[in-house]
Design a protein around this nucleic acid. Sequence first.
DNA 1: CTGTTAGCGCGTTCAA
DNA 2: TTGAACGCGCTAACAG
Lengths: 334, 334
Amino acid sequence: MSAVTLKMIAAELSLSVATVSKALADSYEISQATKNTVSEAAQRLGYVANPYASSLRKRRSKTIAVVLPEIADSFFAQAINGIETITQAFGYHVLIYLSHESFLREQAIMQYFKSGRVDGILMSVSEETSDTSHIKDVIDDDIPVVFFDRVCEDLPTAQIVTNDFESSFNATHHLLSKSCHKIAFIANSGSLSINRNRVLGYQKALQSVGNSNELIVNCGKNDEENYQLLTSLFNQEERPDGVILSVEKLTPLVYQVCNDLGVTIPTQVKVLTFTNLGIASFMNPALTTVNQPAFEMGQAAAKALFKKLSQNIEVLDPELVILPSKLICRESTR
Amino acid sequence: MSAVTLKMIAAELSLSVATVSKALADSYEISQATKNTVSEAAQRLGYVANPYASSLRKRRSKTIAVVLPEIADSFFAQAINGIETITQAFGYHVLIYLSHESFLREQAIMQYFKSGRVDGILMSVSEETSDTSHIKDVIDDDIPVVFFDRVCEDLPTAQIVTNDFESSFNATHHLLSKSCHKIAFIANSGSLSINRNRVLGYQKALQSVGNSNELIVNCGKNDEENYQLLTSLFNQEERPDGVILSVEKLTPLVYQVCNDLGVTIPTQVKVLTFTNLGIASFMNPALTTVNQPAFEMGQAAAKALFKKLSQNIEVLDPELVILPSKLICRESTR
DNA sequence: CTGTTAGCGCGTTCAA
DNA sequence: TTGAACGCGCTAACAG
């Protein structure tokens, strides 16, 4: 049988509904004796409060939303794990939404939140997002939003990012030190702030040594086209001898293209990719990676959100958390 | 400003709340004229129904729960993507819970669902789960549950699995045909049904050719211990020349151990792993994989759940969906 | 310390 | 075709 209500417990114990409610909430105005009786009965009958009735009345759902572009590579998978460790500690529930990199879908999702469905939102914006009014609307409704990884720098709220500029700068210098002199930078979206900072770091590094072989390739969503794009990149008269991948997802494609063209990694081309502690890092000793602290970013974002939730009345100053990435060199030793 | 309610729309149009409610629900008893007026006003004011009030009244939350052990490798990440495509088409919301392979946590999570929080549950059980009464309780409360991947074979509900026995049988034969004669099977949990079936397929294949070098290694959660376990495996007087990994997650560890011992893959040891279409598959040409259709399993599970939800009164016969895995040989060609 | 009353916002009666 | 009244289950205010 289902649906044990306060009313049933009250009837069972000949108490009023209000008393039972207060007893279970451990209110100070209830005697220890009845508290014991009530919690015993609740336990025995398997009472679980109806969250919808409770949320309606309290105007708090104990639920947050996580809005992601997708869960394709392991970055967001790890991030969810990090988020969950925090939400779970706070007794919060997590609704998950995927925008599939679509602005329209992201708009529709934000619409859900204009009715108190969630107490707060953790979000990484889609590639297509440049207009941010749908997000601003939600913030204006006093629903706290925390961005992580794919942030909106122009919105006045908490942002959790990694040191993209610096790590890209270091990554480029790393390849330069391995005597690469023509390094290509491969991205998949020009508008995202992370990508922008990584490109800047790459450019700055090249400039710092007077290397003018700047080569930026913007991949799209279509893997066929990307294949062509990369094939012509490696088919140039003077082939790149180093490649930086802004997204982990493109790694297999690069390997495939090189394989098909008979270009060996890392002898002829050194590959360096932004990634996280996923499997890719371990599998191929010829790959150097900049590890993104995905789990930690999830945790940091969730913590920032709960900080806002616990003082949700006053308007907070925007805060920016920058977590460091880590360059991991796993040069082939075989 | 926040919280546009039916009441506000009613006031705006000098109508009653009931009329507005019916109009938005497209009830037959409302004139087309007022329906138009109402939906225009709702649009203009940015009305979104309060889901908690609505759920409380209708006793349906339009929300399902996805209960997973973790999102460590890409299998569950892909599965979530598949699930989301379906839930999104049905206008449902998705709550996500991670048991972290803990039975106690899984019990606590199932407890949440005894109060109408969700209309249905998609679930992969934790490694530790042998007692299934906490799941049975929820089913008895008429909340439909669909298992996928890590199923409970003894519970009478829908189960989505892959052909584990058969694909493990084929995988073993594949290695045998590559002239392996001492093949180790590496798992990380003995009690799960998938693992059981894979072990059986492995054993059956060995028997079918009269090979008596059965070698089953059960790894645990501790990576240090696993490292030791695998090191002693490869340090045996007669080293295995083939390895089947029941879980993708252990792949990097095997590569690491082999690397540290100076054992080359695939020359000295051929590695075959159960996986999905994650990055691992593409990255290392020396790896043969049995690809799990994770995305499709997520979709199948969600579809099965919605089938149940649409006819939730009658008790359904248990049904079993078996999706085929695919053996992908990616032998080194370089 | 306990009970009574009054909503939270919505959907479903039943009258008008 | 519309509106008034009631209640989903719970919590907050106020009496007793």
